Simulated assay, not measured.
Amino acid sequence: MTPELISNHVSEWGEGPIWHGDRLLYVDIETYKIIALTPSTGEEKIWDVGQRVGTVVPRASGGLVWAGDNGFFFLDESTGISTPIADPEPNLPDNRFNDGKCDPAGRLWAGTICLQKRPDASLYCLHTDLRVEKKFGPVTNSNGIIWNRAANTMYYIDTPSKKVRAFDYDNATSAITNERVVWDTSADPSSPDGMTIDSEDRLWIAFCHGAKVVCFNPATQKEEMQIDFPCVETTACAFGGPDLRDLYITTGKKPDLEEPLAGRLFVCRPGAQGVPSSAFGG
């Protein structure tokens, strides 16, 4: 399988893809940008939010929600104006928000990364009433997060741990319990990064420093597929397209490494189907 280029934008560090409606949203962390790509027309809309942005999700009532250096924000797409919601870590200047997604009930879960590589970061939940709750920690680099079809299991990655964790999940209350490791990737020299899930509850995980996306089945504890890329920093993936069978993959540029295709957005059809994303309900 050969992934194809799809975007014009070249990211310094692309991350956080999510399909909603007829377009793909993702971020370019280091250049402060949120990108919306409509593959059917090729249209790209780009907003500069003025700070590093780790994640973006659609808002059910319109507009976007994102999280970055200084907490959570709403974004008005027509004006480009961002409105602060909350910052749970104003006393931690070495931290910024990283990856995040909405759970099936419309809450936004997003975690922080400590840029000094200390275990000073945490995973938070932005509830639909705009209350922020710390859910898990300490971690060092909060990353991929996703829920299964039954909405009773949450999967989560703290990248430096090289472990994919699972929690029992209560969709009514947002409670997480029974933490466990479903895949320990310590033997791999690369590290698990962004993650999505398909209609068969298989995890699709991008490996930073690994030039690959791996499909892992938690039910069988087996790797079922690997997709290779022409650039080492594969960062995150998401299913999209009209039938949710297109897998979009973001990438980043590795310093001091000349890779012509690094930072580009790729797409392929690996024979799996994704599930609809959830928008923020607040």
Score class of each variant (00 low, 15 high):
N178Q: 09
D228W: 07
A166S: 15
R264P: 15
G100I: 05
E12R: 08
H209M: 05
C231G: 10
M1N: 05
G106F: 06
K135M: 03
I29C: 11
D201P: 02
T185I: 03
F207Y: 14
P39A: 06
E12T: 06
S161N: 08
L5M: 12
L203F: 14
G252K: 11
L24C: 09
G71T: 02
T196Y: 10
F216W: 13
C231V: 14
P138A: 09
A279V: 02
L37H: 05
A172I: 05
A272I: 14
I113F: 04
L37E: 11
V10R: 00
D228M: 06
P138S: 11
E259P: 14
T173I: 09
D48T: 11
S191T: 14
S278L: 10
I85W: 03
A175V: 10
G144N: 11
V57P: 02
I157Q: 08
K163S: 08
P270V: 01
S186T: 15
D48I: 02
V267S: 10
G68R: 03
W109D: 07
K135Q: 12
A151L: 05
D87R: 01
T83L: 03
D22M: 00
F266H: 10
N141R: 12
T235G: 07
L64E: 00
E89W: 07
G281N: 13
T112R: 02
P119M: 05
K254G: 04
T31G: 07
W13V: 14
C237D: 13
D228E: 11
V57T: 08
I146W: 00
L92K: 07
S40C: 05
A236P: 00
A60I: 07
C114V: 00
S78P: 06
S78R: 11
V214C: 07
K163R: 14
K162A: 09
A60S: 13
V139R: 02
G274W: 08
A238T: 10
D76S: 05
P39Y: 05
I81V: 15
N8L: 05
T38C: 07
G50Q: 01
D193K: 07
V27N: 06
D103F: 03
C231N: 15
D198Q: 03
S199K: 06
I81W: 03
F73T: 00
A238Q: 04
D22Q: 09
G144Q: 05
S161W: 00
A60C: 08
L115R: 13
T159R: 10
I81N: 15
Y156E: 01
P93A: 14
M154A: 14
P93W: 12
T153D: 14
F266M: 06
E44G: 07
V213N: 06
K134R: 15
G68H: 02
F73R: 05
P119G: 04
A151D: 10
C268P: 11
T159G: 12
A187V: 11
P58A: 08
I34N: 04
G14Q: 14
G194C: 11
P192F: 03
I81D: 15
T128E: 12
D28Q: 10
L5H: 04
D188C: 10
Y169R: 02
E12Y: 00
P58T: 03
I145L: 12
D120S: 15
E44S: 05
P160N: 02
D103T: 03
Y169L: 14
D198I: 03
H20V: 03
V232Q: 13
S186K: 12
L130N: 11
K101V: 10
G240W: 04
A36Q: 11
N141F: 06
R59Y: 03
C215D: 10
T159D: 13
E43W: 04
A67T: 08
N171Y: 00
